[in-house]
Design a protein around this nucleic acid. Structure first.
Lengths: 183, 183
DNA sequence: TGACAACATGAGTGGCAACTCATAATTTGG
DNA sequence: CCAAATTATGAGTTGCCACTCATGTTGTCA
């Protein structure tokens, strides 16, 4: 089923909508109205719904993009060969989550929410590479499992976001979390 | 301003509403309708709004109760003198959060949500006692601060709840978290 | 027990937000 | 440059939910 290519203006609007949605949902949470997204994108509501028939579809699209960016970053770090890359990546994701609500939803979507299961799996593989390298180098304990790392990351993101930790507290808390992984 | 005592039926209904609200919000999240709460309590909507003029007031009342129970439990543990009581308490709260959405909201309400700031402070004192004892006994590292413990607890609750960790994963993750506190 | 105040009831109101559809505007292949 | 198809528009439509209020009920106290 080779989807016919989008018209030029349609492509442009789709991109604008995605950007606007990311901005709006990050600022006001996912309960922000679709109309607000349309306004921010400089587009009518109907156009948003033409591209994403459902609000959930819009969220899923954002998450897919986000997942892609995170996975790429993780792969880059893994290629670098630094055995502490896992810890770096961990801290950075939490740092981003503190100001970007959407990361949280991505990571939490291991389950049933919007159908992002496979996306998360993709991030999982990238993380697994980082973890393997860290284990070999003795940067983290051998018995630490991938799902635990993901769980800790999820928890930290949620906490940083929902509780609104100040930067200082955030850094100390992440430090404690990483302490739990080291030998 | 000595509030006149409630009438007998009013007291009974107030209690029923609180219990029903806790059950409903735990099951369907805080977006469940007030009407659902009323139905579950066997009461009309108007009655719910007579006792709690706003949905936020209802949530705040639930959290106040919850905070009281948790604080009491923490104090009891502290009185017991077990130096690992902090770790026990931590694990237990997370365990409860996994099936009770409301704990999460309580712990996350360090900030601006419903005005529960002081309630959390109350829990903080009880936790502080546990932490002090654990530090003296060398069960946790000396440099671990109270706000970090609260932050970790918050994070773990959010994670356990939002991501729906299976029991096995939950236990391992909490273990990793506690590893980060030990010497 | 009676009478008054406190309380309960539940149909109704207002408002918000997701989603639709007839119409108008663009794009594109010929 | 001109159709024909694709896309954009935005004023509705629909449904839900927090909250109100006129009316009926129950507890309390003398």
């Amino acid at each position: 089923m080779p989807e016919p290519p989008l018209r030029a203006d349609a492509r442009r609007n789709r991109a604008r909508i995605l950007a606007a949605a990311a901005e709006v949902f990050d600022k006001h949470g996912t309960s922000a109205s679709t109309e607000e997204v349309a306004r921010c994108a400089g587009v009518a509501v109907g156009t948003v719904f033409r591209h994403f028939p459902t609000k959930a579809d819009l969220l899923a699209a954002i998450m897919k993009e986000l997942q892609g960016r995170l996975a790429t970053q993780a792969e880059t770090l893994a290629a670098g060969g630094d055995p502490t890359a896992l810890l770096t990546f961990f801290a950075e994701v939490v740092e981003r989550a503190a100001s970007a609500r959407t990361v949280v939803h991505l990571l939490a979507a291991g389950g049933t929410d919007v159908g992002v299961d496979r996306q998360v799996a993709g991030l999982g593989e990238a993380l697994d590479a980082l973890l393997a390298r860290a284990r070999e180098a003795g940067t983290v304990r051998a018995e630490v499992q991938l799902d635990e790392v993901i769980a800790l990351l999820t928890a930290a993101c949620h906490g940083a976001l929902a509780a609104g930790w100040a930067p200082d507290l955030r850094h100390r808390t992440v430090a404690r979390l990483l302490d739990g992984l080291r030998p």
